[in-house]
Amino acid sequence: MNLTIPDGQFVVIVGLSGAGKSTLLRCINRLVEPTEGQILADGVDITRLGEAELRAWRTKVGMIFQNFNLVNRSTVLRNVLAGRLGHTGTLRSLLGLFPRSDVELALRCLERVQLRDKAFSRADQLSGGQKQRVAIARALCQEPKILLADEPVASLDPPTSHLIMQDLKRICREDGLTVLVNLHFIDLAVEYADRIIGLRAGEVVFDGPVSDVTEKTFEEIYGCSIRPDDFRGRGDR
């Protein structure tokens, strides 16, 4: 496959589970090592980065996960500060001595997801939607250029899903971030994306703006006609 993603675009990748969405996303920050091919960012081939360069690249790429991947027993603030790890010296971070500016940044990130007052709660005391917002704050705290979101709403109920997607879209617009989101719900994709990429068995079967999407497009992506299951349903807002 061959994809070019311009800065500031909100891209949603849709496809059945197993279509290769997660792998595609994880190749970008090399949580999965691509076996062949090139990934170029500003002309640099990501696949050839050494370990230190890779860590530096990863600080520019925020990621949020289906299962939030927070440290449950740590405080919310500490979870968000983890986003600064790539910018902080090892010894300093092991001692927990983050610069004051980092702590301020972390609190600002929490404020943007309306969770500042939860900064000192333990992560396992939050609801699912709150956890995902903490995860967004953690990614923002990296001050990234790109944001990857792997099924960010698959563990959440429909109304919360919409809230999370709205937050994500608003914040990324404000910061001018390039965003790649994996989703398998059609309605969410159509509602929030600038551009949709359809994957099926590791191949791109659709690539275009939302306005080009028709019912036939989805039949191609899912390999059959659309069933009610493929919609997330509307949230009450």
């Binding site: 925020g62 991947n69 927070l70 953690r138 990296q142």
Partner: peptide, 27 residues
């Protein structure tokens, strides 16, 4: 141990000892 946390730490650009200190030890 929940190992997914380590993936998140790696995605933040943390090195190995940082990932252990922030991802494993609190658990």
């Amino acid at each position: 141990i929940d190992r997914d946390v380590l993936e998140a730490m790696a995605a933040c650009g943390a090195n190995r000892s940082q990932a252990i200190a922030f991802g494993i030890l609190p658990q």
